[in-house]
Amino acid sequence: MHNWEGRKSLRNAAPLVAVLFFFATCSTPTGLEPVAGVEGTLTFQGTWPDSIKGAALVALSSFPADVSQAANLLVNYSTPAPSGTDSIEHFIQLLPGTYYLLTLGLTIEPAVFATKLDSFQTSGNLPVVLLDTDLATISQPVTILPQTIHPLDRTVWF
């Protein structure tokens, strides 16, 4: 009786072992992994002009001659800060590569900018103005490495 029970338990366990072996030999799928990008704080000094409804840090694929004509260079942008903000944390997710990072003022409401961005990019024009004044800094490209966050703080003086 005892031997029979032992054989029974072995027989019961066999399919489970087979299934476990099958699972163990399957390759483990890859889920989400750490991303790359730029992170830091945007600080605004002075009084926001009435014409500026918001501001965002943008990543461009090359340095533009005129930011309002830079729609086709726009790779990504941070969540816009509404007018009147003193400081805001920013994050721009990017693939590894080299980018130019500029702080732009939005001349339309941030929500409208986000909603209509596709049509702006089709037309090639962006309703923005350049807020950075240190051209030497912003004309230097930033290199983004895989799974690495590049720290970047910017201050805008109105």
């Binding site: 799928p29 889920g31 989400l32 991303v35 990504n76 997710q93 693939l95």
Partner: peptide, 11 residues
Amino acid sequence: RTGQDRRVPIH
């Protein structure tokens, strides 16, 4: 273009 809001299957 940026990898932003990537979606993956669930396992």
